[in-house]
Design a protein around this nucleic acid. Structure first.
Length: 255
DNA sequence: ATGGCATAATTGTTATGA
């Protein structure tokens, strides 16, 4: 089965591209971020027509996460404990996998209120995992973590060292997820540098190759052991009206 | 030092992204 994650930067602006990608790649589970729409206005019909069940946690204008699944969805949870911002959505996909669609706060600029919120949010995610999961159970966290964990995740690391995406404090907070027991599925299959998942819309970042790997598939060891391949669909950053993110995917052995 | 480019809210301009 194929599981994937994509920050689409508005599902309504990206609908035709997302449908075309799904029709070509036939993923079984898709986590979306930055859907930017309330649940009542999410364009659910074309996904249902393609055989997906939907779990939605959206809000107006900002944020918004979703899980599309060809396996039956159950036990849906919205938000980290007590949270109203639409950044975290959890569901069981079939019998053997807990999937979380994750949208970590960007952090604005280093030192800002948004920056401290980002670092605290990553810690809350870690606490949530420690509370509700164990490394021995099959979990997959898929999403936009807004952190490039290592220098090989940044095409021009010296230029990005002080940014919220690659600052050492953000990397340390991300590292606590790995220290808890999560495995980076793309890194299991690619030494790097890259593959990158995000390129700024501005300044011709994509043609210049100025990319960062900030979208991740993080899995507990039993899921990582089932992962046969993983990668990034870089081509989805090309062409008219792309998201600034490309989809990241992994192929898992069926259970 | 700043803007770049895109989106959604609105219809001129802002907030936010990463």
């Amino acid at each position: 089965m194929i599981v994937a994650s994509w920050n689409v930067n508005s599902i309504r602006a990206r609908l035709e591209r997302v449908l075309s990608w799904i029709d070509r790649t036939q993923p079984d589970v898709v986590c979306l971020q930055e859907t930017k729409v309330v649940d009542a206005d999410f364009p659910a019909a074309p996904f249902r027509e393609r055989g997906y069940e939907l779990a939605l946690f959206g809000q107006k204008t900002y944020n918004g996460v979703a899980i599309l699944s060809r396996l039956p969805l159950s036990e849906v949870r919205r938000g980290l404990d007590g949270e109203t911002e639409a950044r975290f959505l959890q569901a069981c996909c079939g019998e053997h996998l807990v999937v979380c669609s994750v949208y970590v706060p960007n952090g604005g600029t280093v030192g800002s209120e948004a920056w401290h919120y980002k670092l605290a949010w990553l810690d809350r995610l870690c606490t949530y995992l420690a509370t509700y999961a164990t490394p021995e159970t099959p979990w997959l966290l898929a999403g936009d973590f807004n952190v490039a964990p290592e220098a090989r995740d940044v095409a021009f690391p010296e230029a990005w060292a002080d940014s919220v995406l690659f600052h050492e404090e953000a990397r340390r907070a991300f590292g606590r997820l790995l220290a808890w027991g999560l495995v980076d599925l793309v890194r299991q299959h690619h030494e790097g540098p890259g593959p990158y998942t995000w390129w700024d819309y501005r300044g011709l970042a994509f043609p210049k190759g100025d990319g960062l790997r900030i979208d991740h598939l993080l899995a507990t060891p039993p899921v990582a052991a089932r992962c046969m391949a993983a990668g990034v669909d870089r081509d989805e950053r090309k062409g008219p009206k792309p998201s600034d993110h490309a989809p990241v995917w992994a192929k898992l052995q069926e259970l």
